[in-house]
Amino acid sequence: MKKLRLLGITLFLLASSFWFSACSLYQKKPLEVTNFAMGTIISQKIYGAQAKAASEAVLRKIKKLEAKLTINAPGGEINQLNNNAGLKIVTLSKETISLLKKATQISKLSEGAFDITVGPLVKLWKIGSNDFRIPSKQAIATALKLVSYQDLQITGQTARLAEQGQLVDLGGIAKGYAGEVATTIFQEYQIKSAFVNLGGNVVAVGSKPDGKAWRIGIQNPRGPKGSYIGIVAVKNKSVVTSGDYERFFEKNGQRYHHLLDPHTGVPAKTGLLSVTIVANSPTVADALSTAVFILGLEKGWQLVTNYPELSPEAIFITTDKKIYVTSGLKKTFIFQDESGQYHYVEKR
């Protein structure tokens, strides 16, 4: 009898304690998934009871966006627009129209430094692919004539490109928009803490479960992948970097990178190695990082600090290895350069 009772108590205690520990472990551990979509690696780290359902919804949505928005998706809305350039007006979904409008707005604000009609130039240079080549001046001039965001006319639910041969390429904004969509889906699933990385575009949702800010390393533009020059600690922000090291080719000692200046038709040379934008909207952060890189330190600084909405912040790394940070980021930016090659200019 006594033995039986002892056994009973032991079993009860063991069972209940395992149950409790299993419960607390379950809540603390995030769901981590990595997928391939939009030509890049998308990783999600999500805390919350509906993490799995949310991550699957995000992925489904991103796959849909991919089919709709990328230039590599035959039959997608952007390709319909491009195929009918100079020919006819195309009716598009509400979502695509609103993204095109957003892109056009950033084009205006940046005076064309960000321009989604850069398609003919992207096609000409093919930077990031194996058949990269330096185009002739003549070819660049011809392609440049087709680049103008003002030729993208949006009326109601329809859009058209004015000239034949014009091409919209959402490469500079689509990943950002995908991040934005992810945050909306997380809200629907009551996810309060999540971290998404879309090929280097970071979206930090809420804070970490312990209430602390997410810590994001800023890539050293001349160091091995994963080495950083500093850290930003953020809550509810998107962090996006554009740099000349992401996709590039070197020929005769010259670096040809993927950030093509829509005004000159060649890779932007404005004295910057990279620009990081920290903003509330992932879409704005994505497009703005490209625009600011192309504008350079002076004009880029102007654009960021005078930006009409949502007060974005920026980290500039110049070719003479100086780091400049806009005032709103001074508190959250931690300069931590292991390479010892960079100089943090605190006052500007």
């Binding site: 970490k208 810590r215 950083y228 740099g243």
Partner: peptide
Amino acid sequence: QTAIRIEGYQKTNNKEQLDGMAY
């Protein structure tokens, strides 16, 4: 559709862990 990533903690103790990289 195959990937390799390295997980764990870095041996240098003074380095606090990052949640991710912007690149």
